[in-house]
């Protein structure tokens, strides 16, 4: 029963880029000021990743660590591993001012793939994709809602809040319609 998981939307039809919802991914919001003792080790232990620099996302296998703000790191890991990771973080950062909290179910994640994947997002995000740095985690908006995305070899991962997953899924599909290539 307790492992019954409901996805908000099903994978959608293909346009000029392949759009599908993935997950759920395990996600932890880790708030701690830069330089907090044990922070680097805690991130490493939870994700296998180094502490990301400004706007950077570092991936390692199924895990990733992304820079969200000067005092916030997003940890991505398998959904089932979140509870253990939280215990480990609280142990590693014991006595240090920090906040680590499970936000896995607060998020929806989409994959946008194909050679023209960027075109789908150019219609939704006020972001200069030509100047995106490798391994950049970009927080912005997708049309009318908050979103964040990062790029890899096969496309983009875009995350938004779970409640608007339907809206964002529709946005992506509308933007990827055949005939709308830029």
């Amino acid at each position: 029963m307790s492992d019954a998981i409901s996805l908000m939307t099903e994978a959608g039809s293909d346009g000029f880029a392949k759009v599908r919802q993935i997950g759920p991914l395990g996600m932890i919001t880790l708030r701690a000021k830069a330089g907090t003792k044990g922070l680097r080790a805690a991130v490493k232990a939870a994700t296998g990743c180094a502490l990301p620099d400004q706007r950077q996302i570092i991936t390692s296998g199924d895990c990733a660590a992304g820079w969200m703000s000067p005092d916030e790191t997003l940890l991505i890991l398998p959904h089932a591993g979140v509870a253990a990771a939280l215990r480990r973080i609280d142990h590693d950062l014991k006595g240090q001012h920090h906040l680590a909290v499970d936000v896995s179910d607060a998020r929806a994640v989409f994959r946008i793939e194909g050679p023209k994947a960027d075109q789908v997002l150019r219609k939704l995000c006020p972001v200069d994709f030509d100047r995106l740095e490798p391994g950049e985690l970009r927080r912005t908006r997708a049309a009318q809602v908050a979103a964040a995305f990062w790029k890899d070899d096969s496309g983009f991962s875009l995350m938004c809040f779970r409640s608007v997953a339907g809206y964002v899924g529709d946005l992506l599909h509308v933007s990827a319609q055949p005939g709308s290539e830029l």
Binding site: R55, R138, R141
Partner: peptide
């Protein structure tokens, strides 16, 4: 000044 992004007003 925190993330170095040139953000437009809508952000």
């Amino acid at each position: 000044p925190y993330c170095g992004v040139a953000a437009e007003e809508t952000e």
